[in-house]
Amino acid sequence: MFGNGLIKGLRITLKRFYGPNLTEYYPEVKPNLPPRTRSSMALEPEKCISCGLCVNICPNQVINLTSEKDGNNKRVLKTYHMNIGRCLLCGLCTQSCPTGALRLSQEFENAVYHREELLWDMIARSKRSNKPSGEEG
């Protein structure tokens, strides 16, 4: 009969109208992201051996690092910059990192007002506390 579908639809919406709501109240209640979420990068400079693998694997030339040799002819990280505005957050760099110095973190509120602020100085950022990512990153 014509109208059956209409009444069924009305019944569904009425059921949902009285049902619970699924909204996440975001700024008040922060979402609990799974440990593998790729939402920003974190670096532990003491672990970094400046091998440059991350620079090479990055598909978008996001990472830019310089190093200098210390007394023992060992390379020491000097600067480590990421142009996060170009970053795809694909995670290839963290997978290639042999020492686990570069990690993905779950800090997801990355919006900034100016484009220049997207040029992250990872060493400076590491001084601030970053929530570290899960075991594999």
Binding site: L33, P34, R36, T37, R38, L88, L89, C90, G91, L92, Q95, L104, E136
Partner: peptide, 20 residues
């Protein structure tokens, strides 16, 4: 997201398998 880390652009498959 639970598995691959992202919701839409997963980057989960690798040549030779999957990432984790």
């Amino acid at each position: 997201e639970m598995t691959a880390g992202n919701r839409m652009t997963l980057n989960y498959f690798r040549i030779g398998g999957v990432s984790h």
